[in-house]
Amino acid sequence: MDKQTILQVYETMLTIRKFEEKALHLFEENKLRGSVHLSIGQEAVAAVVGAYLRDKDYITSTHRGHGHAIAKGARPDKAMAELMGRETGYCGGRGGSMHIADVEKGNLGANAIVGGGIPHANGAALSAQLRGTDQVAVSFFGDGAANEGIFHETLNIASIWKLPVIFICENNQYGMTTAVDSVTSVKDIAVRAAGYDMPGEVVDGNDVFAMEKAVKKAIKRAQDGEGPTLIEAKTYRWKGHWTGDPEVYRTRDEVEEWKTKCPIKRLEKHMQDKKILSLEQIEATHTKIDKLIDEAEEFALSSPDPDPATVLDNVYYEGDK
């Protein structure tokens, strides 16, 4: 990873972390409502993928999708406004945290149905293939989603049509309160790739350089017309599944153990060791992102609610094609 990309990945991870810490804080202050699923601890996966995709490439995301959106170029202010259901949010307050999309920027959307967005990445990849472009599509989904039928249907279709798509399973060890090994037939979800005749790779999802290697390889394969790849990024969510999760299904020790593998701390250490950023520069970056997130909060809080008179807008596309 070149220095510029390292810095980009670092800033993206930090933006995701601070965005979500702010969202949690606002939730606890009753300033936003609904479901807010945090990806704190998992930032490296989204950030690295985002760094290697171009604007014209596509992603599909999940209920735990703030990181994916930010990594694909979403602005924290418009994303925060969406979390608050404001008119200025990405979906004008119609979608909320679980449906942030920016189709023009290639984010085909977060999806609150587990597994629901996986085939949409297939479709974007098919579209690229039919239009003869070199675009690729990435689908993010969880370990829980890998047990949905749609995951299997989608991988089979991607394989037979050699679609330029990359399936990225963020195995954060749990689907809600259920441990992955108690409901999954295989230890590594990546081995399921073999059933669909595509490469499957287990990656340390908290290591940006391990992610880099796997993602670059998968993008090249997709662009060379060789078809899809399944990457399983082993990672961990530090926070509860939802805000207020009593977390009866895991021990504090387990959480603390994973916190020692913090992807951001790891990269900060690497950057200091390699003299990419000094401690002062790291602190300055924190200050810069803190400011960005504070501005996002202000933007969201000062944005208007949607006008109820517009509630029926956009059920349908109006007018001719």
């Binding site: 085939p119 479709g123 239009r131 249907e153």
Partner: peptide
């Protein structure tokens, strides 16, 4: 395009294609 017998899979694939210009 002949699809596998995977209705959810090809409808979802169609949705992604429709979102991206097809």
């Amino acid at each position: 395009r002949d699809t596998p017998i995977a209705e959810a899979g090809y409808v979802g694939t169609g949705i992604g294609a429709a979102l991206t210009g097809m």
